[in-house]
Computed example of a mutant assay.
Amino acid sequence: MTAYIVFTRESTRDQAELDAYSQAVAPTFEGHPLKVLAAYGAQEVLEGTSPEGVVILEFPTVEAAQAWYDSPAYQTVVQHRWKGASYRVVIVQGV
């Protein structure tokens, strides 16, 4: 069953760290079956506070999503995102 990882950037702490993350994240996708559905596009907030940005990645299964997130390549790069900003990140199973 399809799964999605949804990244919601709440607030930026260090733009240089986010830039380092942005430069290094794409190669972590290699060998993983994912599709980028949204990446910091225009938003229209319907409820709640406006996030700084949203990214949605599609995977064929929850296991595939977890495998990418837990991969050594991504776990090396994610350190920059953690230093650079506050995010909410969830895996959501599709219907």
Rank of each mutant, 00 (worst) to 15 (best):
T12M: 14
L18W: 12
V55H: 05
D14I: 13
P27V: 09
E58Y: 05
V55I: 15
I56H: 02
L37T: 04
L46C: 01
A39E: 07
V55G: 05
G48E: 10
S11L: 07
A26W: 08
V36T: 03
E52W: 05
R13H: 13
D14R: 09
A42W: 08
E52F: 01
P51E: 12
E17R: 08
F29V: 00
T49I: 12
V54T: 09
R9T: 05
I56A: 03
V45R: 10
V54K: 02
A38E: 00
P60V: 12
F59P: 03
P27A: 11
E52V: 02
T8P: 00
Q15H: 14
G41F: 08
S11V: 05
D14E: 06
E47D: 09
Q23Y: 01
L34V: 12
F59R: 01
R13M: 11
V55A: 14
R9P: 00
L37P: 01
H32K: 05
L18P: 02
P60S: 10
Q15P: 09
F59L: 00
T12R: 11
A16V: 11
G41E: 13
G53L: 01
P27W: 08
V25D: 11
F29T: 04
F59D: 00
P27M: 06
G41L: 05
Y40W: 12
Q15I: 15
A24Y: 03
Q23I: 10
V45K: 05
A39S: 11
A24Q: 08
S22M: 15
V25P: 09
S50Q: 15
V36N: 04
H32G: 02
P60C: 12
R9A: 11
Y21H: 10
Q43A: 14
E30Y: 09
Q23M: 07
P60F: 07
S22V: 09
E52P: 00
G31H: 04
A16H: 13
T8S: 11
E52C: 13
E44S: 13
T8M: 03
T12V: 15
P33L: 03
Q23L: 02
E58I: 00
P51C: 15
A38N: 09
V54N: 01
K35P: 00
I56W: 07
V36S: 03
Y40P: 00
D19G: 01
R13S: 08
E10C: 08
P27C: 14
A20N: 11
T49W: 13
L46T: 12
E44G: 05
T12L: 15
A16M: 13
R13C: 07
T12Q: 15
L18K: 06
Q43C: 11
G53T: 04
D14Q: 11
L37V: 00
E44Y: 09
G41W: 03
Q43N: 13
A42T: 14
A42D: 09
Q23D: 11
Y40T: 08
V36G: 01
S11N: 07
A38Y: 05
A26G: 12
A39K: 07
F59G: 02
Q43Y: 14
E17M: 05
E47I: 02
